[in-house]
């Protein structure tokens, strides 16, 4: 299983890969991945690679990711080359017409990519008092809603319970539910 997670520095991407890691470890599966710290993380494009299984290197090659999780539509589109044919593309969009570009639509259909766009900011505005820090858990909720590559609701929720700081646990579980509802309203 190979994930690529992209977004903008400061969006809380690292927490998402920690949750994915916890789930894999609980299943007894080996994990290796790479994250971005330092200058590169400061408000710029960031990318996390994450592999579950018998791998040695932390990096996902282009065309080999099973799932691409994008916290930002532009970063997501720029990173689509990582996704394999038939892969899953979860993308937080801030402009409803983000995926309307004709070339983009052709690419997504040619490569049989399962696309799941959602208006994360709008959902968080409506239900979480506009606190965008919960975007990372929202996207995890959407991923488990899609059952992306075997992510089960119970496992994700259990990992969230263990990894959330106590003061954010309730809100994180709510954001997770909201993410699930994106897929199964």
């Amino acid at each position: 299983m190979k994930y690529v997670i992209v977004g903008i520095g400061g969006q809380g991407i690292l927490f998402t890969s920690k949750v994915l890691g916890k789930i894999a470890i609980d299943k007894g599966l080996p994990v290796i991945g790479n994250e971005v710290h330092g200058m590169a993380q400061r408000g710029g494009s960031v990318i996390s690679h994450f592999k579950v299984g018998d791998y040695r290197s932390p990096l996902v090659s282009e065309g080999h990711a099973d799932v691409l999780m994008a916290f930002d539509q532009n970063e997501g589109i720029r990173s689509l080359a990582f996704l394999r044919e038939g892969g899953t593309f979860l993308v937080n969009i801030n402009e409803p017409c983000a995926l309307e570009n004709a070339h983009l639509k052709k690419h997504l259909s040619d490569k049989k990519i399962q696309t799941c766009p959602f208006l994360g900011y709008e959902i968080l505005d409506r239900h979480m008092g506009g606190n965008y820090l919960f975007l990372n858990v929202l996207i995890l909720g959407a991923a488990s809603g899609m059952k992306a590559e075997g992510l089960e609701e119970e496992q994700v929720a259990a990992a969230l319970k263990e990894l959330s700081p106590p003061k954010h646990l309730k809100a994180n579980l709510k954001a997770f539910e909201l993410g699930m509802k994106v897929i199964n309203p």
Binding site: I8, G9, M39, A40, Q41, R42, G43, G44, S45, N74, E75, I77, R78, L80, A81, N101, H103, L104, K106, H107, D110
Partner: peptide, 18 residues
């Protein structure tokens, strides 16, 4: 197709910033 989309949408890597 993807390259054409990235070009049309003028998507470039986001620079680090304060």
């Amino acid at each position: 197709e993807l390259s054409a989309a990235v070009e049309e949408l003028k998507l470039t890597p986001r620079k680090p910033q304060l």
